[in-house]
C-alpha cells in the first residue's frame, strides 16, 4: 500500500512535465495549422471580395445581426418606439463602430 501510494506520487511530476510539453506543443501545433489554413483563408478572402461580402454568417437570427456592420444603433429598436432588443445576439455583440456622427456633422455644415 505504502509502495503503491509512493509510486503514484512519483507520477505527478512527470505528468506535470507532459502537461508543460503539451502547452509548448500547442504553439507548435497552432503554427502548423496556420500554414494549413492559409489556403482556405485566401480562398474565403477572394470569395468575400468577389461577392462584396461585409459580414460573417454567425448570427442569422435577425437582419441587423446577420450584417452587424451594415446595421445602425437603432436597428434593434426600430419595430416601435419602446421596443426593447430581444434577440440573444444583442447580448453578445455591441453595435457597429461607425463614425456616421462625424460625417453627418460635416454634411450639415456643408448644407
Amino acid at each position: 500500500m505504502l509502495i503503491r501510494s509512493f509510486n503514484k506520487r512519483r507520477l505527478v511530476l512527470p505528468c506535470l512535465a507532459v502537461a508543460l510539453l503539451g502547452f509548448a506543443m500547442s504553439f507548435v501545433d497552432a503554427a502548423l495549422l496556420r500554414k494549413q489554413h492559409a489556403v482556405r483563408i485566401e480562398a474565403n478572402r477572394a470569395l468575400a471580395e468577389r461577392l462584396g461580402l461585409t459580414d460573417l454568417a454567425l448570427f442569422t437570427e435577425a437582419r441587423y445581426t446577420r450584417h452587424p456592420s451594415q446595421a445602425d444603433r437603432h436597428a434593434a429598436f426600430q419595430d416601435h418606439p419602446l421596443a426593447l432588443e430581444h434577440f440573444p445576439t444583442g447580448s453578445l455583440i455591441i453595435p457597429p463602430s461607425h463614425s456616421h456622427a462625424y460625417l453627418d456633422r460635416t454634411a450639415a455644415r456643408a448644407d
Binding site: 482556405r40 480562398a43 474565403n44 454568417a57 454567425l58 446577420r66
Partner: peptide, 9 residues
C-alpha cells in the same frame, strides 16, 4: 470551407 461567410447565401 467558406461556411463562416456564406452559410445562408
Amino acid at each position: 470551407d467558406s461556411e463562416l461567410i456564406s452559410a445562408d447565401l
